[in-house]
């Protein structure tokens, strides 16, 4: 009886000792790995930081403009090219054909939409006159 208890006690002690040792070892190993991952994260963060700077550098508007001129056939957007969804005819299909005065169907010619900043017809006529100072006036100032 006492012998059995002693043996079991000894066995338990050995198991507990080994277990504790193993756990402590495992913790140490995990801690090492954790530190490794930490420094990897730091290195990763640093390269993200450098890449961000590079991204900003590559996004320099001057460079983008140069590249766009080189590779794209796009130009500065004109105010005329901008329209809102309200400018579209509501039911475009209806206007594909219309009846002329002889009762025949002819293709519908859409009216050009009004341009931004359009002048009234009389103002437009006035704006055609180029205003520049007379040559005599300009000569005196040069």
């Amino acid at each position: 009886m006492t012998r059995a208890v002693t043996i079991i006690g000894l066995l338990l002690t050995v198991i507990i000792g080994a277990g504790t040792y193993w756990v402590s070892h495992e913790v140490e190993r995990l801690e090492k790995r954790y530190a490794g991952i930490q420094s990897e994260i730091l290195a990763e963060q640093e390269s993200i930081h450098v890449l961000q700077a590079e991204w900003s550098y590559l996004n320099n508007p001057e460079r983008i403009e140069r590249l766009s001129q080189e590779y794209l056939s796009l130009a500065q957007i004109d105010t005329l090219q901008m329209a809102s969804i309200d400018d579209l005819p509501e039911n475009a299909d209806q206007h594909l054909y219309r009846l002329d005065k002889f009762g025949e169907a002819v293709a519908f010619l859409p009216v050009p939409r009004t341009r931004p900043g359009d002048l009234m017809p009389d103002e437009a006529a006035e704006a055609m006159i180029i205003d520049a100072p007379s040559v005599a006036n300009a000569g005196g100032n040069q």
Binding site: Q76, I77, T79, M82, S84, T114, R115, P116, G117, D118, L119, M120
Partner: peptide, 16 residues
């Protein structure tokens, strides 16, 4: 203004 107005989200309007 021609260049920055579209960037700043200002819609060109019709004078009429």
């Amino acid at each position: 203004v021609t260049r920055i107005a579209p960037l700043l989200g200002i819609e060109p309007a019709n004078a009429k």
